[in-house]
Structure formats: C-alpha cells, structure tokens
Computed example of a mutant assay.
Amino acid sequence: MRKTDPSQTIMDALRRIVQALRRASARYEREAGLTSAQVFILKTLHSRPGVSVNALAAATHTQQSTVSEVVTRLETRGLIERRPAAQDRRRVELRLTPQGEQLIANDAATPQEALVAAIADLPAEKRAALAEGLSALIITAGLGDEAPHLFFESPSQDAS
C-alpha cells in the first residue's frame, strides 16, 4: 500500500473546499444574482432573526465590518431590514424581509454553513490543531497581510 504525501492531502483538501465554494457561488450568482457570502448571511439571519450585526458576525465567524458591508448590500436589495429592538430602541435588529425569506426558502445548506458546522463538530483539540496549522500555513505562504473577508465577497470599493 502506497503512503499518501501529506502535502498532497492538504492541497487536495483545500482544492475540494475552494471548488465547493466556487460552484455554490456560481450557482447563487446565476440563480439569484447574489454571492455565496450573501446567501450565507441570509441563511444565518434566517436561523437567528432579530440579531445585531455584531451577533451576526459572531455567528458567521467573520469580522463585524465585513458583515456590516454585506448587510448593507442586502438591505439595499430589499432582502434585509433593520429595526429598532422592542426592549431597547437604541439596539438595531436585523430581519429578513418577505423577499429575503422567499429567496432562501427550501435552499440546501451553503458550503460555508457545512464548514462552520463541521468545525463546530470537531473535538476541541482537533479544532485547535487545525487553527494552528492553518495559521502557520498562511504565515509561511505570506498570505497573512490582508484582512479576511467572507468567501468570494469583495470588500467595499467605497472603503478608502
């Protein structure tokens, strides 16, 4: 039996993840004119109606500023609305509009949802080892200078 090269195993795993994300992104763009990241935000908000931008960022394991940009784009399209919270009018809650609900009705889980769930299902020591290994890979490859954004979601062109 031939041993598999760990480097090949790692590259194959990364390819599978990127391919799944790319296929989903192309499908969402074609069918709804949305990015995969936007659908991920909509689906996450569907399961957590009334959350704040900060809570949505935490639920998607994404920086607040990135989520805020995506929420603004979705709000502009009429898929999300912001409302003052009933208990504290200073707090803003996010909710899907009927159009947003209809858009994601009966849609299968996004690859991002599958990845978040899979990471959560890993034992703590494997999650820590994976985080450490990926961080080391990013640093060694010289890819750590840019802030992380949602998959296939470009940062706002307005930000300067």
Rank of each mutant, 00 (worst) to 15 (best):
E132P: 10
Y28W: 10
G50A: 01
L137Q: 09
S52M: 10
S160V: 14
R90G: 04
D12S: 10
I80K: 07
G133E: 08
A13D: 02
L150V: 08
P111F: 02
D107N: 03
F40S: 09
R89T: 15
S52L: 11
L115E: 06
P148T: 00
L94W: 00
S68H: 08
E81R: 15
V53A: 10
A120R: 10
A147N: 10
I139W: 13
H46C: 01
N106S: 03
Q157D: 12
R77C: 00
A114T: 13
L103N: 02
I104W: 01
I104L: 04
P98T: 02
R48M: 11
L94C: 02
K43D: 07
G100K: 00
G78Q: 03
P6Y: 05
L115W: 09
G133N: 13
L103P: 00
L143R: 11
T9M: 13
R77E: 01
L45D: 07
V53I: 14
L21C: 09
E132Q: 15
A86E: 15
D5G: 03
A117H: 03
Q102A: 13
A108H: 07
R23Y: 12
I104K: 00
V51H: 05
S7M: 13
R30C: 05
R95M: 07
I10R: 14
I138V: 15
F152T: 00
A109V: 07
V53R: 09
P155A: 01
A37T: 08
R23K: 14
D5M: 04
I10Y: 10
Y28E: 05
E93N: 14
L122E: 04
T44S: 02
L74Q: 06
E81G: 02
E69N: 08
R2C: 02
T72F: 04
I119M: 08
V39S: 02
A136W: 13
R89C: 08
A147S: 11
L103R: 08
N106T: 09
A129Q: 14
S65Y: 09
V70A: 01
R15G: 01
T110D: 07
R90V: 10
K126E: 14
L79Y: 07
Q112Y: 02
G33N: 03
V92I: 15
D145F: 12
D88P: 13
R127K: 11
A124Y: 09
V71D: 04
Q38P: 05
L34K: 04
P6A: 04
A114H: 03
L45R: 04
R91L: 15
G78V: 02
P123T: 00
I17N: 03
A147M: 14
A57S: 02
T60E: 08
T60C: 06
R15M: 06
H61E: 01
E69C: 05
